[in-house]
Design a protein around this nucleic acid. Sequence first.
DNA 1: TATATATTGTTGT
DNA 2: ACAACAATATATA
Length: 164
Amino acid sequence: MAQSTAKYNFLYESPTGQLSVCIDEGSITKIIWLDQAILATTETSPSKLINKKLKRKIISVLDDYFESGLIEPEISLRPQGTLFQKKVWQALKRIPSGAVKTYGDVAKELHSSSRAVGQACRRNNIPLFIPCHRVVAAKGLGGFMGGYRHVERKRWLLQHEGIL
DNA sequence: TATATATTGTTGT
DNA sequence: ACAACAATATATA
């Protein structure tokens, strides 16, 4: 059958905590750690509308990632953002597993500034698939998920990928 | 070495 | 128009 057009989400238990994965028309639109969000009940639809094939695929990709540290970005993503943000996120997806860039590096690539890149990173809706955790400050780790409060998670991910 | 200030591009109000 | 920011380079002691 054609892909479900329903907007729905499901939960995934990861070593870093419970993730909520939101999907709309066959694409991932948002991933958040549950303690971040007040929730997504409005985005949940009855299970009969769920495209089970897509769901299984996403779960298997996440399983692989938390197993090996390698992410397989063959899943359709639909982030919403400005043109500049999309350019940044596009650049992030080109960072291979096991590598990191600084905000300054990415900025140079886009002829922008490090601070602007940070702004774009913080508004990334799809962590893991868009590897915003692979962008660090020139000295130190930089922030994660909007502030400095969740750098633990960032450190965990980088450690998991063999950096640090 | 450490701390302060200047400069920076993009975004939200 | 303006203030805020997941930064960084430069000055100052």
